[in-house]
């Protein structure tokens, strides 16, 4: 029983990180129909920015450090959109996707060459003592940082949901997702909406990177693997849908944790991708995605 609860928390923590990344994929895809292959590397970069901040400004409390790292990463995300993707907005979609691939490799190599290829851990910013209540009542060994990571992630997702559904900019984002061409006619600044989307997506990914660096470790290439997992999660949930991205993330994390616990950690990736392919064959548009009608 206790191990099952522990596994549940492990899955929730991993799922929270996936969700923080998956949301960025999903939002950008929802708005400009672009698979941003560099997004996983933005997540990695966020982790390293967090690492840099904790090592340079060790006095900074976590509740200051996290938003600062999110802000800096958001700036990077917006800059990349401004410099590279915006020029290609009306180009062939494949060119944009290739550009994002290039940006991703660039970021990976940049971090590897400046910081080094080693695997690192972000020094603890969150308390790592076990949660006594859970230990006493459920017999499960769950540390505070794990619980906090899950809770802060959920809070960030809740904020995102409010922004998208209850604010003006969120309404504009949904309008762009619905019909990109009609929106400028209604006086909405398309560039601003897209920039905000990239900023939010990058900030959430940075939070994910920092959490991941605390819970596990970070290295310059982690964006490939985790980025892809999160992307799978977004697709499983139905890319373009916020609820779907979150749902898919926790689902994928659950499957992975079960695979590692009861089968073999070597099979993790294979099973994740197998699940993706299987699901796409059953639901070609993801669980929460909307089918599109062929236009002739």
């Amino acid at each position: 029983m206790d191990t099952i609860i522990q596994q549940l928390f492990n899955a929730a923590q991993l799922g929270a990180v996936y969700a923080l990344i998956a949301l960025g994929y999903s939002m950008v895809y929802g708005i400009i129909r672009l698979i941003n292959f560099a997004h996983g590397d933005i997540f990695m970069l966020g982790g390293f920015i967090g690492l840099l901040l904790t090592t340079r400004f060790g006095w900074m409390p976590f509740y200051l450090l996290l938003p600062l790292a999110m802000l800096l990463t958001a700036l990077v995300g917006v800059t990349i959109e401004r410099v590279a993707y915006r020029r290609l907005r009306n180009a062939q979609r494949m060119s944009v996707v290739i550009t994002t691939l290039g940006v991703g490799i660039f970021l990976e190599n940049l971090v590897r060459l400046t910081v080094g290829p080693e695997t690192r851990q972000i020094p603890a910013g969150l308390p790592s003592a076990p949660v006594v209540w859970l230990q006493q009542h459920l017999g499960a060994f769950v540390t505070w940082d794990k619980l906090l990571i899950i809770l802060i992630s959920l809070a960030l997702m809740a904020i995102l949901w409010l922004v998208v559904n209850r604010t003006l900019i969120g309404t504009a984002m949904r309008a762009v997702a619905d019909n990109k061409d009609a929106v400028p006619l209604m006086g909405v600044n398309l560039n601003l909406v897209i920039a905000v989307t990239f900023a939010i997506g990058s900030a959430l990914a940075a939070a994910g990177g920092i959490f991941y660096g605390q819970a596990y470790s970070i290295d310059p290439y982690m964006g490939i693997d985790l980025g892809w997992k999160a992307f799978i999660a977004a697709v499983i949930g139905g890319i373009g849908s916020i609820e779907g991205a979150v749902l898919g993330s926790f689902l994928l994390a659950g499957v992975e944790v079960i695979t590692v616990a009861y089968l073999s950690s070597n099979l993790k990736n294979g099973i994740a991708f197998g699940l993706l392919i299987l699901l796409l064959l059953v639901w070609p548009w993801g669980i929460m995605g909307k089918p599109t009608l062929k236009k002739v």
Binding site: I35, V235, N266, L267, N269, G270, L276, I277, L280
Partner: peptide, 21 residues
């Protein structure tokens, strides 16, 4: 389109993963 990209990449990773095992 995008889904084909995802699935082909997924197969790439499955093949690599299978060989690793």
């Amino acid at each position: 389109g995008d889904y084909l990209a995802i699935i082909t990449l997924g197969f790439n990773m499955i093949i690599v993963n299978a060989i690793q095992n």
